[in-house]
Design a protein around this nucleic acid. Sequence first.
DNA 1: ACGCTAATAT
DNA 2: TATATTAGCG
Length: 459
Amino acid sequence: MTSEQFLSFEVTKNKASSFAKGVRILVVESDPTCLRIVSKMLQAFGYEVTTATQATDALHILWEKEDEINLILIETHLSDMDQYEIIETVRAMSSSLPIVVFSADNNVSAMLGWLYKGAALYLMKPIVKNDVKNLWQLTYRKKKKTTVSSVGSNSFHAGLAEENASSVTAGIPSLLSTTGKIDQMGKTKELEEIDSDDEDNDNLTVLKKPGLVWTNELHNRFLQAIRILGVDGVHPKKILQHMNVSGLKKENVSSHLQKYRLSWKWEQDATQKTMIRDHHPSLTLNLQGEFSQFTNPQFSMAISQSEHRNNIQNNLCSPVSMHSRGSAHSLTRVNTNSDGMLIPSYGQQSKQLDHTYPNCSHTGIGTNNDGNLASLGQKRNHNVEEHLNQGTTFSNVGTHGPTFLGNSQQQLQFPLLQPQPLPEKEDESDIPNNITEARNEFLVTKNEFLDNPNNDLWL
DNA sequence: ACGCTAATAT
DNA sequence: TATATTAGCG
């Protein structure tokens, strides 16, 4: 094969490339073909590359522009210098420059020799993408910033959360608190097991990301924000504002919202198909055949990642899976208001919201010819808030409702759940809004119910 | 700057 | 798996 063919690798863009950007690597390799391959590979990841085919050239470059070189990549068999001379010289010139060597020589003592002389890494030829992808980490010494406080494995360094000088002075729930579970034991120890996967070269393990856990409380807050904000307000920023959880980032909300919408969409598709099938029995076969599988963009998209794992049947994108960890409730149905707009809801709430179409799955949901069913933000003049205000209360909903409402204990257990008022009310926040407060109280009560695993589910 | 979607990484 | 990050678009 020609070397050009060999060069036609492709590099997946990933995080490494962004870090690699701006990192200049001096590659020293006497074989021009190999030099080109390695250089191309590095450049594909975003590295800047300076090349040298001889040790003396490399040292010369290093001497002149030491500041510009962030790492030196040396092939071990350079004709114009013997064995360790180049690495010794480089070390002498700069004690901090990361040195990586590569070679087809798998002689162990030679490898150890290079490492002993100061190489940070010994790569075997042929060099592959994974070998160079993370080289930037060797140059990463100074600019660390995060330093997770390590209080708990999933603690979240809420830190500042820039108090937006809002009038809300009540407790802002922090992701650190986790509703008083770990208080006494402090057993949040980090079982940092983690072997670093493979064998070789990883003292470069990347920093572990904390990762936000969408607890019931958080998720309910999220749902509550969506319901209150209405269709026009469902955007990450506003949701974030309303949730008012310190440490929560917009990205967290965006990601969660994306998943939420996805699951919602799925539910809608399923519902629509069911309806069409019910109303047009002649289409049944088509719907279950190629039609439903190949004309539904969501389908192919939804399983794209799972496909590789051979998990066609999984419910990853099913609404049922759209719940937070340990959640006792899930999205179980789709509601419509009088205009046919679909409202996603979770578990018990759907009963509560769905006073118009108590049996929506069989009562012919309006297909909403004009609107895009897949988007939360399509219609303007209707938001869920209206439904909440005119909706039924727990007392009309079922046998479980009234008994719960009378229980005032539950309210005291969640003192921090009071959501932030709507943003546009900031100026008038001095004046209590009875309706708003009543509504909020109502919602909080409902969420408390959802949060309590001891409560029975209605669906 | 922001938000959305899809794709992919972790 | 759940969540994070990124790219490309509007």
